[in-house]
């Protein structure tokens, strides 16, 4: 009995020892790795698909003998169906609404960030941060409702007849509120990345909290704040629903916030929402606009990321 047990044991050990340490190809493992790699590169295909699909249709648009780059950039009316190709009519509204939005979101977002990062007690933060998070989580179409049915009536009582029912001011203001949490949270990240030692250095010089915050911490976090603003601009330029609901339905070359005008995104939404047949200039023109949107936001996002990465290295 005892011997038998011993025997089994030796056999066990022997079979264990037979394992050699040469590298083996494990088919399952390799297959999994290939699948995971494909999941990883799918995102690259997404980008390629965006560029290819938008580019293909945009080329059809620009390939139309009637469309010239000169018309595209110098005309101030946009109605491809009747030979008006002035993208400026849409860009003006995008610029106006985005500018108003940043004008609201930058000071408010930055001030919120400074308060949260430099002043608020943990308890106050616990109350205030969720407010920003909720604001950030509200769907943009709801902001659109808010702009059209709350902000616009208020503006109407202020500006009376000078303001149109659909106007860029209302859309821009609400877009500013929408972007505020984004700028606040990115700026706050930048501010809290400023080392404690800098703040202590300032306090030890007899600086007040304000002097430390505004003259030492904010300048030290400036690049991060810049990145936040750039992302904010990119978000404003790409935002669709607020402007689709509240800014106006129809291209209008105007920088007057009280006017109705259609942004690039709003135009895409309105035209594609109707019955749109493929292979028409209306269809291809939308892709030309979308390609411009994509390129502009891509550049803005790349700049912002580059800034954030450099900033991170500085303090690590």
């Amino acid at each position: 009995m005892k011997e038998e047990a011993l025997k089994i044991k030796t056999v066990d050990v022997k079979s264990f020892r037979q394992v050699d340490l040469k590298k083996k190809t494990r088919v399952g493992e390799s297959l999994i790795q290939i699948l995971l790699f494909m999941a990883g590169v799918l995102s690259i295909f997404t980008t390629i698909a965006i560029v290819y699909e938008l580019g293909k249709e945009a080329m059809l648009f620009f390939g139309d003998p009637d469309v010239t780059l000169v018309k595209f950039f110098t005309m101030t009316r946009w109605q491809p169906g009747i030979g008006q190709y002035g993208i400026a009519a849409l860009v003006s509204a995008t610029l106006t609404t985005s500018f108003i939005a940043i004008l609201i979101a930058l000071p408010l977002g930055l001030a919120s960030a400074v308060y949260l990062s430099e002043y608020a007690s943990p308890k106050a933060r616990g109350v205030l941060k969720p407010v920003l998070e909720i604001l950030a989580g509200i769907p943009t179409v709801v902001y659109g409702y808010f702009a059209l049915l709350f902000v616009t009536p208020i503006l109407k009582t202020i500006f009376e007849d000078r303001i149109q029912v659909y106007n860029m001011l209302s859309a821009g203001l609400v877009m500013g509120i929408m972007i505020l949490p984004l700028i606040a949270s990115m700026s706050e990240d930048a501010l809290s990345a400023v080392p404690r030692a800098l703040r202590e250095g300032a306090y030890a010089m007899g600086a007040t909290r304000l002097e430390t915050s505004l003259q030492i911490v904010v300048p030290a976090a400036l690049s991060g704040i810049g990145a936040a603003v750039i992302v904010g601009v990119s978000r404003a330029v790409g935002e669709t629903m607020i402007v689709a609901v509240a800014a106006g339905a129809g291209p209008n070359f105007s920088f007057n916030p009280l006017d109705a005008a259609e942004t690039m995104t709003g135009h895409i939404a309105r035209i594609s929402g109707g019955d749109l047949s493929y292979n028409t200039i209306d269809y291809t023109s939308l892709f030309a606009i979308a390609l411009m949107l994509f390129l502009v936001t891509l550049v803005l996002n790349l700049i912002s990321q580059w800034i954030v990465n450099r900033f991170r290295e500085k303090y690590e």
Binding site: A197, L198, E200, G201, A202, M205, A207, I216, A220
Partner: peptide
């Protein structure tokens, strides 16, 4: 302001050499 402090790790402000000194005096 009466009792200054120098820290373990050098912590100059991210400003010019001149401003590092002028800042405290100015405030």
């Amino acid at each position: 302001r009466r009792i200054g402090m120098v820290f373990q790790k050098p912590n100059p402000f991210p400003k010019s050499i001149y401003e590092n000194i002028a800042w405290g005096a100015r405030i």
